[in-house]
Design a protein around this nucleic acid. Structure first.
Lengths: 209, 209
DNA sequence: CAATCAGGGTGACAAATGTCACCGCCAGGT
DNA sequence: ACCTGGCGGTGACATTTGTCACCCTGATTG
């Protein structure tokens, strides 16, 4: 079972590594909206996503959920690897947005994997690099762009990631993800509708581009 | 020479690792304002800072230099390790703010170091983790705080890092670092002066807290 | 059906930030 | 001494974003 997942979602792992993981890992499931990780929490295992989708976000002072990126099958949580290795607390929130399955690896294994399996070590570095780059993109947007552009980017990203042009999301949720307020988002969405970029419906948005 | 630097600035490296580095590394110097790394550039070596200070920033559309963090002696450039390993381009700018010396290591060495020197592998992970956390702090600030708080934090950080209460920095530079405009910064600085937090002088700011 | 509630629209206003124009001051160069 | 350029102060104004109040509509539930 675990081996099947590895073969499909983590194709680059060398066979011996898959073997090793299979012998030591277990599978965990999360329901939609279930929280995987919370600010200040310690890790005891590293997680490899094999099914579903996880939202990584930063909690705002008044409960906002500032969206950073998704983890999808084939991804791993960079922090769970780093913090696991260093036994440090995380500073980020992770929440399942769909029914999600992850392979969990005890942190004690990290050293062994890192030094004896080249494909693991490459995978870890690549994971860090890509998460780091995603943060840079986030920073670019909030530092240099207005809310209109950020909203446009956000919606395009959702359409792409969720593979659908009918986004079932409320204005309030978008506002929370962008750290803004519902009214602002509503106004901007209306402008985009007038430009012909999308159609507003009750409870969902239809993307037209 | 290199060994001396390693002993003082990278105390945690095991002796054999220091030996190995010494045999393969060389030293590079940078003058103030010299650019070490630019968007889209490829790496051929990993860098360990042993003297001076490097500013890491993101370039804005109109030439702003959005400040992210400093690298100091004992630090390494996370991206130079990651991008080096993956032969990918970087997306960040690095500029010396003081006369700076770095130890450069050919990327070909990375694999060897990573798997044969435990202290190196810990060092790399710790480097990633702390850079990642610094980005999270940056995001927190621009996502959730107003310019006044960001300015306050920025100045406190400068005082701490530069070890002086007399900050030789112009209002325009601060504005660029925070992706704002000179007038806004001037106004906020004046407010802080009225509150008694600092004194404004020509060409420098005196921190009073 | 009536009551309730979440999602959403809207106008008025406030606050923060960006922009423009223009001024004065000081330091360095000639 | 004079010019010039960089730094900074300031008022007026535009724009963007946040906030408040209130309404409407459709879905759900008792």
């Amino acid at each position: 079972m675990i081996k099947e997942y590895l073969k499909h979602k983590f194709k680059n792992f060398e066979p011996a590594l898959m073997e090793k993981i299979e012998q030591n890992a277990s599978i965990k499931e999360f329901e939609p909206d279930e929280i995987l990780m919370t600010t200040g929490q310690y890790f005891r295992s590293t997680m490899l996503v094999v099914e579903g989708r996880i939202k990584l976000y930063r909690e705002g002072p008044e409960g906002g959920e500032f969206f950073m990126y998704y983890l999808e099958p084939g991804n791993a949580c960079a922090l769970s690897m780093i913090c696991a290795a260093k036994k440090e607390a995380s500073e980020i929130m992770a929440k399942a947005v769909e029914k999600t399955k992850v392979i969990t690896l005890p942190i004690e294994l990290m050293d062994d994997l890192m030094r004896n399996y080249k494909t693991w070590y490459y995978f870890v570095l690549e994971t860090y690099r890509s998460r780091y780059e995603e943060l840079l993109v986030v920073i670019d947007h909030i530092a240099f762009k207005g809310m209109d552009e950020r909203l446009d980017f956000y919606l395009r990203n959702q359409v792409m990631k969720l593979q659908t042009k009918e986004l079932k999301i409320t204005h309030s949720e978008i506002a929370s993800d962008l750290s803004s307020s519902r009214e602002v988002i509503s106004r901007l969405l209306k402008k985009m509708e007038q430009k012909g970029d999308l159609l507003l419906h009750r409870n969902y948005i239809e993307w037209l581009r």
